[in-house]
Each structure stands twice: as C-alpha cells, then as structure tokens.
Nucleic acid binder design. Structure first.
Lengths: 200, 200
DNA sequence: ACAATAAATGAACGTTGTTCAATATCGCCT
DNA sequence: AGGCGATATTGAACAACGTTCATTTATTGT
C-alpha cells in the first residue's frame, strides 16, 4: 500500500491527470480506464474516488488542462502577428496544429459525451467561451463598422467552421490526406469568409 | 425461445437496426447496448452476433441508414431551389434541421469512435463523400472559372464549417440558444464564404 | 506504548461486449 | 406418423468496466 501522506491530495490529483493525459495521448481514448490511471500512479481505484467525483470529473479536468494549453498557444500566436488578418490565419493554423500534434487529447475535449442528464459545468463552458472571445477580439479591428453582436456571431460562425474542418479531417471523413491539406482548407475558409464579412 | 425461422436473417437485421435507432433516438447513446437491442426485438444477445460482426458493425449500419436519410433530404432540398446560391443555403438549413430534429441519431454518426486499429470501411466513407459531392455539384455553377479541384476544396471547407457549427451548437459549446441562432450562424458562414469565393 | 484518526485498499456489485457449447425447433425422409 | 439430421437460438461464462464502502493499515498526538 502506498504510504499514507506520501502525496497530498493535490499531488495525487496532479499525478492522476498527468497519467491520464499520457494514457489517452499514447493509446487513445479506448485505453483510458480508472484502474489503468490508478495503476499508473501506484495507487488503486478507490483512491481516485477520493480526489475526483467520478471518471467524468477526471476527464473534464484533464480536458480543462488541454484547453488551457490550447488557449495559451493561441494567445502566443496572436502576439507574434502584425495585423489582424494575419493573426486570424495564425490562430487557425495554431488550432489545427495543436489538434494534429495530439489528436487523441484534442478529441477527448470535443468527443467526450457528458452523461445524459448532466450538463457541462459553468467553469468548463467558460474555458471554451474564452477561445471564442479571443477570435472575437482579433476580428474586431477587421470590421469596425459592425456591431459587437455581429462580430460575436461572426467569430462563432468562423471558428465553428475551423473546428468542423479540423474534426472531420482528423476522423478521416473529409477525404483529404496530410495536415497541410487541412491547413489549406482552414485558410481557405478564413480568407473567403473574411472577404465576405469585411467587404459588404 | 423465439421460434426458428420466425424471421429471416434480413428481417432480424432490419428489426435490430430499427430498435437500435429508436433506442438511441429516445434515450441517447448511453442507453444503447447489445442486450437492450436484442431484448427490444425479442431475441437474445447471441442472435445479434449472427447478423452483425459486432456492435461497431451494428452502429455503422445504423449510421449508414441515418446518412442515407440525410442525403435524401438534402437531395430533395436542392430540387426545390431555383438558383445555386439558394440551394446551398437550403442545403445548410436542411443539414442543421436534420441534426436538430434527432440530435442523438446525428451525433451517433460523427461522435462514434471506431476502435483504435480499425478504420472506417470504404462503403461508409463513400456515403460521407456523397454528401460533399452534392455540395460540390451545387457550388459548381457559382464559380465557373474555378478549377474542379478548387471547387472540391471549397466544398469541403464550407461543409466542414457548417458541420462544425452544427456540432458545437448541439453540444452547447457555442454559447448560443435555440435552433434559429444556429441556422443564422450557418447562413452567415455560407453567405460570407461564398462572397469571398465567387468574387476574387 | 497506545489509542485515535484518517489514508488507502480491494472485494463486491451490476453492467458492458463477445464467445460458444448446449439446446430447442424445424423440414425432410422413410 | 415418427424420428433424425440440420441449424436457429439460447444463455452461461469471461474479462473488463465504473462505482461504492467496510476493512485494513500507517501516522499522529498524548
């Protein structure tokens, strides 16, 4: 038995999330199970339930970390750009590259089904919202005469679009091969959408 | 025991798919299980495995039927339109309405993860491809000076986009309420993309 | 040293997908 | 009509799953 107080609750939480991430990342969502995560950190199932409400909770917290990392990368990408148009394209590129580099971890965020009655908690929703807010902020200077709600809508339409391309491509439903093709699709979507949105 | 030859293999197949669809539709993907499907048609688990390779096979065939229905609706929608632009918008509307009317069944198509090593069979891929081909056909007359590969790419970018809006909205990740808002997003995407794609 | 306290366990339960020997029923032939 | 061979159907069995919680174990305070 792992010695008591070997690790604090917070440490166990961290270890479990780390192990879960590695498991999903390397062996796919199917390889993920409570016993495997527990085993990987030298504890048993029961311990996990002292730290997480249930497996859904663990997955949600794991996804939150992934989402944080994605958001960080997107923030970073934006800084390196001179103008808004370039920034938007780079955001798209970053999003797709992130998904491609670790498809399993990314799929976990958007593929995981929350149990029937349950709804995604507020704090998680906000992490997703934060991403749209970022897109919104970048789009703002591109269409100055548009109202705030209009821009909010445009950001959602466009980013929903980028997301769709990404998910269909990664699950081999688009009939395109290679990351570059996916990047091209996304750039095409962004460029053309922007063309229409900014012009009229 | 169900009397022998009560139903042909083909009949059992049909009954099982019907029952599975109803189960998923009414109680969500979580309620779906081999024993439940078998029970619903008055047989036992074993019988299902005489008709389907495994549960993934059953799900795949169920999804194929859903995809066929969706394709049918999209074909029908196109016919009722005068010009291509209107047709494309109607296609988007039809797609989203279909997903909204039976979200569980629709989610099953795109949310279902095929087991790690396995890849989606050719015949299924083609049913998805058929949908893109339809979009392509509708876009053709809208940009006559574009090459065929360009149009193929555009169709995938655009429809990937519509799909993304649809899936994010249905899983409550877009922060929009009501089907109409989703429809608006999709129309915005299509209109603006088309604006850019046809103009330059 | 010992009792009180709390961390960690792991057996237990119900469910899952999948398999396959056993069983029940049919159609056919004498 | 009766029985037999063929086969459609069963359901017990298996391993693995999420989840719970009485039991066990290590640590701490006195």
């Amino acid at each position: 038995m792992a010695r008591r107080n070997d690790h604090s609750r917070e440490e166990i939480r961290e270890m479990a999330l780390e192990a879960a991430e590695q498991l999903v990342s390397e062996q796919g969502p199917g390889a993920f199970s409570a016993r495997k995560v527990a085993g990987a950190i030298g504890y048993t199932v029961g311990t996990l339930y002292l730290v997480f409400d249930n497996l859904d909770d663990l997955i949600l917290q794991m996804n939150a970390r992934t989402l944080d990392r994605l958001h960080g990368r997107m923030l970073q990408a934006r800084i390196q750009c001179r103008n808004s148009r370039e920034a938007l394209l780079r955001l798209g590129e970053t999003y797709i590259r992130f998904a491609d580099e670790d498809p399993h971890r990314w799929e976990m965020i958007f593929g995981h089904r929350t149990a029937e009655g349950e709804k995604t908690p507020e704090w998680f929703q906000q992490k997703v919202a934060r991403m749209f807010a970022l897109v919104e902020a970048v789009m703002q200077p591109l269409a100055k005469r548009r109202s705030a709600p209009e821009i909010a809508q445009a950001a959602r339409a466009l980013w929903g679009g980028v997301h769709g391309i990404c998910i269909l491509a990664l699950t081999d439903k688009l009939g395109v091969a290679g990351v570059q093709s996916v990047q091209d699709l996304a750039q095409s979507l962004i460029n053309n959408y922007l063309e229409g949105f900014t012009r009229q």
